[in-house]
Design a protein around this nucleic acid. Structure first.
Length: 160
DNA sequence: GCCAACGTTGGC
DNA sequence: GCCAACGTTGGC
C-alpha cells in the first residue's frame, strides 16, 4: 500500500487472526482495547507499522479452532509503537536480538467495535466467487495481519 | 494429531 | 548467495 493512498485519507480495512483460546473476540469485548502483541512476522509487522492508521477497520478472525472465521469487527486505535513483549525475558514473545534502541517488532492497539451476530466461517467465505482474490483465501497463506479490499469488506459485511 | 505450506536460520 | 534443516501456522 502506498503512502499516497494514505494521504488520500481513505479508510483501510484489515483482517487480524487470533486463536480464541489465547485471545477471543469476547476477550476484546471485555477489555475494550488491547495491544496486538506477539506478531513476529516481518510482513505482518510492516502492515501494522507502515499502513495501519487509527480509525482503520479490522475483521477479527478466529483461527486454529473448531469453526475458523470472522467473528467480529475492531478498529485500529493507535499508530504502531514497539511491542514491549520483545524486551521481556519472561514473555513467550521475547526476542533477544531486539534492542530498545532498535526495536524489531511493532504493534498497534485495537479496540472492540462489535461482535457479528454469527461467525462467517472460512468455509463460507471460500464459497463466494467475489472473495477468491482475498489474501486470506490464498493457498498456504499464514499471515496473521493482512489487508482486505474495500469491495471485499463491504461484500462480507452484507453476508452477516 | 497430522501435515502442507511457508519463513527463518546457519553452514558452507 | 544457496539451500537443507528446522520451526511455526493453521486447516482439517
Amino acid at each position: 500500500m502506498s503512502s499516497d493512498a494514505r494521504r488520500a485519507n481513505t479508510p483501510h480495512y484489515w483482517l487480524m487472526k487470533s486463536e480464541p483460546e489465547t485471545f477471543s473476540i469476547d476477550d476484546l469485548k471485555r477489555r475494550r482495547r488491547e495491544p496486538w502483541d506477539g506478531v513476529r512476522n516481518y510482513q505482518a509487522r510492516n502492515f501494522m507499522r507502515d499502513d495501519m492508521r487509527p480509525g482503520d477497520r479490522v475483521f477479527f478472525y478466529h483461527s486454529n479452532c473448531a469453526l475458523p472465521g470472522i467473528v467480529g469487527i475492531a478498529e485500529v486505535a493507535t499508530d504502531a509503537y514497539p511491542d514491549p513483549s520483545q524486551f521481556d525475558p519472561h514473555s513467550p514473545y521475547f526476542d533477544p536480538g531486539s534492542t530498545r534502541e532498535q526495536p524489531r517488532w511493532m504493534l498497534v492497539e485495537v479496540k472492540f467495535v462489535k461482535k457479528l451476530r454469527r461467525t462467517i466461517s472460512l468455509d463460507e467465505l471460500k464459497r463466494h466467487d467475489a472473495l477468491t482474490g482475498m489474501p486470506l483465501l490464498r493457498k498456504g497463506n499464514r499471515l496473521s495481519v493482512m489487508p482486505v479490499g474495500a469491495a471485499e469488506w463491504n461484500y462480507i459485511l452484507q453476508l452477516e
